[in-house]
Design a protein around this nucleic acid. Structure first.
Lengths: 108, 108
DNA sequence: TCTCACTACTATGTATTACTATATAGCAGT
DNA sequence: ACTGCTATATAGTAATACATAGTAGTGAGA
């Protein structure tokens, strides 16, 4: 399904955080995961910008590891601040989601 | 609850469409409704930009009516294209919402 | 009459963010 | 050498929520 760009804003960062939280991973893998799990149109460039942003905000720890195929991978792990950000994201998502459901079902 | 700006992108337009769909209304009223229903921090300027955008994209019909208190109000109504856009929004929202829930509960 | 509060819309500028497009680089197979 | 797959990086663009300020009309109270 084609999703409006604007609906993804904020959401994508949350998804990336969640993926990293689920286990050490890197940009290319995250992109593939997204493409296979309902977000077909998300491209590599988008994921890398998000990762760079997380790094800049010091929410992740980074480790470079050699790959058997292609250039070295940058593995990401959430630090304490990253976990907190992720928790915040889910809270906010739940809140917005609840409000929207109410709005739709009870327009009064 | 304080919601990250980015999480609101795309969502706010959907909410405004839904409000108009629920019955002829105008900018000031929509703003107040939002402020009283979980989106305290949304300001008038934001709502009016959305309304102008909807008008530009020809998703709404407009009628000016005198008010008993203050200047004339611009009442908005959805036309066919607007109703379709609203339906699309809910579809996309449901989709993203489903994917996110799966992602959270089943990280595999 | 003047001021204030409330209502209502308009306009400008800014920050954030997803996307496009492109570049770089390593390795395998032909 | 060439192609294809893996993997990261980055400059540029468009969309959008927000902050802020301005304009205006109405009615109430001093």
């Amino acid at each position: 399904m084609k999703i409006t760009t604007e609906l993804l804003k904020g959401v994508l960062e949350g998804i990336v955080l969640q993926r990293i939280s689920a286990g050490e991973t890197y940009g290319y893998e995250i992109t593939q995961y997204l493409n296979e799990h309902g977000f077909e149109d998300v491209v590599e460039g988008t994921v890398y910008t998000i990762l760079m942003r997380l790094e800049k905000q010091q929410l992740v720890a980074i480790e470079k590891k050699k790959s058997d195929r292609g250039p070295a991978r940058k593995f990401y792990q959430l630090n304490a601040a990253g976990e907190e950000r992720l928790a915040q994201f889910w809270q906010q998502w739940a809140y917005v989601s609840t409000q929207l459901t109410q709005l739709k079902e009870n327009p009064a």
